[in-house]
């Protein structure tokens, strides 16, 4: 991607500044997708595809924005976002785990629920101003050239995500809970043999995943956009679902993929700022094109990594 960029841009200092700006934007813009994709990873590791992640993000955006406007403290917004995202995921979990409804269809219905609810209660916030998260530069680390501004001069939720990725990895692959979740996604019937309920474990995983998606929404509305707009996630939740597939359901790869999409999303605005003329609509389509291309490049290899009972009812 950086290579193609070089074709568009004038050489030298200017190009360097542009690339740094895009990398900064990749981290800031990719973080909301990162949270959602981490949540989707937990959910899918437990065997449940949640296309409703898009809805959890959207609900998280509005809940976080509204709570931040009301309280003035964006951390309450994060909590509200997580609760809203988790609540929507709970609807999904109940439907697919206990009512054995189709996971893809239910996910879309959950998205409609989110679109409707956010429209019903969100219109009054469209022009609201918010005192959201501000960038905090980390002392010393933030002064390293290139790496400093790219990684260590961001809003607090970005730093939280740096911690969240290894924590989710540890949780999934080193803790007892993680083992149970992965078993629910691979061989749910074997949990029954141990007197455990795969249904409860799946439900918990889906709700936890939705809560992470809600936090992703919170980052989008209270740290990046600092505004609320109807349907402002525009497919980020769907991208997160695709991302989990080609990241082979592994948190660190999810992180790398999220920043790739962050870069694709931020590319347009950065090029404009730096005076490069590229078709706006092509740039808008870029994140989706990149997703498809990466899927093509990696799908063949990744297929066997899928949890065995993914998408299957108990």
């Amino acid at each position: 991607m950086i290579g193609t960029l070089a074709l568009f841009t004038p050489a030298g200092q200017h190009q360097h500044a542009l690339i740094v700006a895009i990398l900064i934007g990749a981290v800031a813009g990719g973080t909301s997708i990162l949270y959602a994709a981490l949540g989707e990873t937990i959910s899918e590791r437990a065997g449940v595809v949640n296309v409703g992640m898009e809805g959890s993000m959207l609900a998280g955006c509005l809940a976080a924005f509204a709570a931040t406007v009301k309280t003035g403290n964006p951390w309450w917004g994060v909590l509200a976002g997580a609760v809203a995202g988790g609540a929507l995921a709970a609807v999904h979990a109940w439907m697919v785990v206990y009512r054995k409804a189709n996971q893809l269809a239910t996910g879309l219905v959950v998205l409609f629920l989110a679109i409707g609810i956010t429209d019903l209660y969100g219109t009054s916030y469209v022009s609201s101003a918010v005192h959201g998260f501000k960038s905090i530069k980390i002392p010393l680390l933030g002064d390293i050239p290139v790496v400093g501004p790219v990684l260590f001069d961001h809003d607090p939720l970005v730093y939280v995500s740096y911690v969240a990725v290894p924590v989710v990895w540890w949780f999934l692959f080193r803790s007892r809970w993680g083992l149970l979740i992965r078993t629910a996604g691979e061989k749910p019937e074997s949990l029954v043999a141990y007197g455990l309920s795969p249904a409860k474990i799946r439900t918990a995983a889906v709700i936890a995943g939705g809560a992470l998606g809600g936090i992703g929404g919170a980052q989008l509305s209270t740290a990046v956009a600092l505004s609320w707009a109807q349907n402002m996630t525009v497919g980020r939740g769907f991208i997160a679902v695709a991302l989990v597939i080609f990241a082979a359901w592994e948190p660190y790869k999810v992180m790398a993929g999220a920043y790739l999409f962050g870069a694709a999303i931020t590319l347009g605005s950065q090029l404009q700022v730096h005076g490069v003329k590229v078709n706006q609509f092509l740039l808008d389509a870029l994140p989706y094109l990149v997703t498809i291309l990466v899927l093509v490049a990696l799908a063949r290899k990744r297929k066997n990594a899928a949890p065995e009972a993914l998408g299957q009812a108990l």
């Binding site: 497919g235 769907f238 597939i245 609509f281 389509a285 899927l295 093509v296 799908a299 297929k303």
Partner: peptide, 27 residues
């Protein structure tokens, strides 16, 4: 074709093509 040649799940690719289609119209 993405499914047959690239082994990409059609559920995901059709979902993403929705946004690209909307962009074509917008353009």
């Amino acid at each position: 074709i993405l499914k047959l040649v690239g082994n990409v799940s059609e559920a995901i690719s059709t979902l993403l093509l929705n946004y690209i289609g909307a962009d074509v119209l917008a353009y």
